[in-house]
Design a binder for these strands. Structure first.
Lengths: 197, 197
DNA sequence: CCTCAACATGACGACATCGTCAACTTAGGC
DNA sequence: GCCTAAGTTGACGATGTCGTCATGTTGAGG
């Protein structure tokens, strides 16, 4: 269906992706489209040719970050200590947030919902679910939390990273202590929410 | 120095404040100035007469919310159980955030820095510091946290409230368990940040 | 080398918000 | 009631972003 791109078009596409990756990271997802185009050395028209909507750019740029997250979860699954695995996954995710302003916004707003993204998300969720189950079986992760509760870590750190970039490790450490079986107090029966990234 | 306002001007000022309070709460701090003016039944010019900058409006609207926070801290200080006092203060603060979108943004971005606000902040900080010290003396609040660490709760819940309005109580409960002495693990030596609201 | 479909360009109109200002209206002292 | 300073109005220019489109350029098959 989709005709293959011409050589120059392909080159420009790559340049645009690189530019977007850079600018999203440094200035956030709301950077003007024209700035991305100019940073890539092309006109805004070309940008709109390749990526009709901002969301298309976002998806293209951050798909590999999501892969990284899935990989992180897989690695966490194979960690010696189940709790260390769990903690290292979260630390890795937060590190990504702290490094890339755009990704941090994604963590808060969620990814654009395309089939490809949905599939990645499914895989990641499955892996993380198992990471948590393992830590729970080991008795270190409190039994009354689930994947959706990780949203609190992700969201929380997302804001912390904006307000005090250096402090997220401390924030995470405090939250992790809240996730431990040791010293856990019953949670309100309120619904944990579905989060999207 | 400042000449007293004329009767109609005073009336319009009140209307503007009421309108701003409403719209900030429902639509956030970035609601267009014109919308506030029209919601108050006056022209944008009048709005700019009374409040030359958006920050002036924000300060006027949210000063009493800060008073409420200080009062909350004072009450927490007199709670029977020190930990309950601490927890109820945070719950109250989060409740305010969950109720008022504008206030929630304030919690994230900080208040405009005027002398009056600074003084309120000083009083609130003093009270909360004592609330925490009391809970620490009682042995329920872990000794290696300080007022600045509350930023993590405020910031975190601020994001949660945006992403999943109903879930903040659970988020808070998890964080509170992280603040308990029971089951506390050493924190990274990283700096806790100065937060502003 | 020629041709044409694919591609790139950048000026443009649409839109939203801001803050200002000259012209008009009105409160309140006399 | 009159006068004037205080207050109000809303149209306006400035700014920033968006997405489009007529026009010009170029890659690549024949």
């Amino acid at each position: 269906m989709t005709a293959p791109l011409r050589a120059d078009a392909l080159r420009n596409r790559a340049r645009l992706l690189a530019a977007a990756r850079e600018l999203f990271a440094s200035r956030g997802l709301d950077v003007p489209m024209v700035d991305i185009a100019r940073h890539a050395g092309v006109s805004n028209g070309t940008l709109y040719n390749r990526f009709p909507a901002r969301e298309d750019l976002i998806e293209a740029v951050f798909a590999d970050r999501m892969e990284k997250l899935v990989a992180l979860a897989d690695r966490a699954l194979r960690a010696d200590d189940p709790w260390e695995g769990f903690a290292s996954y979260l630390a890795g995710a937060c590190e990504l947030q702290a490094t890339d302003r755009g990704f941090n916004q994604i963590a808060a707003r969620g990814m654009p919902q395309t089939p490809a993204v949905r599939e990645l998300r499914r895989r990641g969720l499955a892996a993380v679910t198992e990471v948590m189950a393992r830590a729970q079986r080991a008795g270190s992760l409190r039994p009354d939390v689930a994947v959706d509760d990780l949203g609190f870590v992700i969201w929380g750190v997302s804001r912390t990273v904006e307000a005090a970039p250096g402090a997220w490790r401390r924030h995470l450490a405090l939250m992790l202590d809240g996730f431990r079986t040791e010293g856990a107090h019953p949670l309100p029966d309120a619904e944990p929410p579905a989060h999207s990234a």
